[in-house]
Write a protein that binds this DNA or RNA. Structure first.
Length: 501
RNA sequence: GCGGGCGUAGCUCAGCUGGUAGAGCACCACCUUGCCAAGGUGGAUGUCGAGGGUUCGAAUCCCUUCGCCCGCUCCA
């Protein structure tokens, strides 16, 4: 039994060894939080994105696509709240080495008849007021102070003055002076537009693709002949200057998103219905690309932890070797974004409903998925080490739909030119249709094992029956290792059915 | 940013108290191979993360630095 830590190590190692994922800038010593995708990785990524685009956009009547730019008018990020809200002041406790978000840390001065007895500090919680009052009583008793305890007024740490902050004890150790001043972390990458590098030219690399959709909402409504409900989908890179990128490609500074903004009429029961619908739609989609359903979970964000604009948010989670984490977030955002952009741009973004003859800002459901996270989940879900008669077999059980290479073509042996010629011909025929590989080196069993390791679902072997007998070839299945004989025409239709959903 | 761990071949790693770099797998070529690998022969491969110091001599000791991994905070 391998421990979970070595499991992810094995996967990282396989990803490099077989050309899926490389550490960015490796020859320069690497670059934290960035990754490159190799020959097999790029195929897998592309297949994941294509599957999503086909299912979410092309095969639906209520969806259209968009590709907005990575760099947009910086006003967009002021409207969306990213310029102010995306920076989280952090406070470190020098004593316990803990780090807190300043707005989640609450402190109050304990006063008895106007005399200060020091401060209390707590992490944000529902019961923090009660706890703070209990602590205050305790402090009063310890100080043996008579008189009236003044009301305990908890305030967020980042709203205190510098002098006040200096008196606040660490919530972990109770020590005064252990906390640092709040330090700003803005997650947006800045750049400057135009050759002149002054403040007025500051722009940002988008931290999410969503805002490009909202910014183009009016364009699409005006030109796209869309009716509510409808969605706008986008796949694209996004950038966040994460404090600590972690867990391989799970959290990186450059990543790719597949996002939908699904616009719906107003109304409490309306968004609740669509929210649930999208959770189910998205969940079943993960099955269609081969994610093991036991690894999938759902996590409903508690109301008090929701962002100010969100009415609800449910995560679809995946049990990674390093823990269960968010794959996709499905948020009900109300009409927050459109109303923000309406205010900031001064343009009317209301939708006119022909049926009800009403003008209003549609509400929105936002299923937002990370390509790289899906990529990792697909690999983790597929990775398996079989024990066959004491021998190990490493296999990636990719769903044929996402497998980077669909078929391996082999002559049974390479020292018979007839076999080689026939196999090469079959190879180039298949190559017109799919990404396939040809391999003639080593024993046939060895070649099967080699393609198992990169998740090729089918192996086709040209043997003596092919050239001397009925022309049939052997089709070997990766998962069962079963073999069957098929004519070349049957082979094509068989593969067609299995690969192209 | 702070704390802990770690950097030796493509991968996994060995190299003890300083003596001038190795194994297995993978890879390439040829042979062998009539259907589930690890047969044969031959071959390529390392600025021992980087810089500096100690020393006759450093992968090994010291200092500095960079990078990676884990925890805290954030999120797709």
């Amino acid at each position: 039994m391998v421990s979970e830590n070595t499991l992810i190590d094995e996967i990282v190692s396989l990803c490099k060894r077989r050309g899926f994922v490389f550490q960015s800038s490796e020859i320069y010593g690497g670059f934290n939080g960035f990754f490159d995708y190799g020959p097999l990785g790029v195929e897998l990524r592309r297949n994941i994105k294509d599957a999503w685009w086909d299912d979410m956009v092309r095969r639906r009547d209520d969806m259209v696509g968009l590709d907005s730019g990575i760099i947009m008018n910086p006003e967009i990020w002021k409207a969306s709240g990213h310029v102010d809200g995306f920076s989280d002041p952090m406070v470190d406790c020098k004593d316990s080495k803990m780090r807190y978000r300043a707005d989640q840390l609450f402190a109050a001065e304990i006063k008895v008849d106007g005399d200060s007895l020091g401060w209390v500090c707590l992490l944000e919680s529902i019961s923090m007021q009660d706890e703070a009052e209990k602590k205050a009583e305790l402090i009063k008793r310890k100080a043996a102070k008579q008189g009236k305890l003044e009301a305990v007024d908890l305030r967020p740490f980042d709203e205190l003055t510098q002098d006040e902050q200096a008196q606040v004890p660490s919530p972990a150790t109770g020590k005064v002076g252990a906390l640092t001043e709040p330090r700003d972390f803005n997650m947006m990458f800045e750049t400057s537009v135009g050759a002149l590098k002054d403040g007025s030219s500051t722009a940002y690399l988008r931290p999410e693709t969503a805002q490009g959709i909202f910014a183009n909402f009016k364009n699409i409504v005006d030109t796209g002949r869309v009716k509510l409900p409808f969605g706008i989908a986008q796949i694209g890179k996004a950038f966040r200057n994460e404090i600590t990128p972690r867990n391989f490609i799970f959290r990186s500074r450059e990543f790719e998103q597949m996002e939908i903004e699904y616009f719906i009429p107003q109304g409490e029961e309306v968004w609740q219905r669509y929210h649930r619908e999208w959770i189910d739609t998205r969940r079943s989609w993960f099955g269609s690309i081969g994610l093991t359903s036991e690894y999938l979970g759902e996590e409903v964000h508690p109301k008090e932890k929701l962002a100010h604009y969100a009415k609800a948010c449910t995560d679809i989670t995946f049990k990674f070797p390093f823990g269960e984490h968010e794959l996709e977030g499905i948020a009900a955002r109300g009409n927050f974004d459109l109303s923000q952009h309406q205010i900031h741009s001064g343009k009317n973004l209301e939708f006119f409903d022909e049926g009800t003859k009403q003008k209003f800002l549609p509400h929105v459901i936002e299923p937002s998925l990370g390509v790289d996270r899906t990529f990792l989940a697909v690999i983790c879900s597929s990775y398996q080490v079989d024990e066959v008669e004491g021998e190990k077999r490493t296999v990636l059980r990719f769903h044929p739909r996402v497998a980077p290479i669909k078929v391996g073509v082999f002559p049974l042996v390479k020292n018979k030119p007839e076999l080689v010629d026939r196999a090469r011909k079959l190879y180039s025929n298949l190559q017109q249709r799919w990404n396939v590989i040809y391999d003639q080196s080593g024993a046939i069993g060895r070649r099967y094992r080699r393609i198992d390791e990169v998740g090729v679902p089918f192996g086709v072997t040209v043997d003596f029956d092919t050239i001397e007998g009925d022309g049939s070839v052997t089709l070997r299945d990766r998962d069962t290792t079963n073999q069957q004989r098929l004519s070349e025409e049957d082979l094509f239709s068989y593969l067609e059915e299995k690969i192209n959903l």
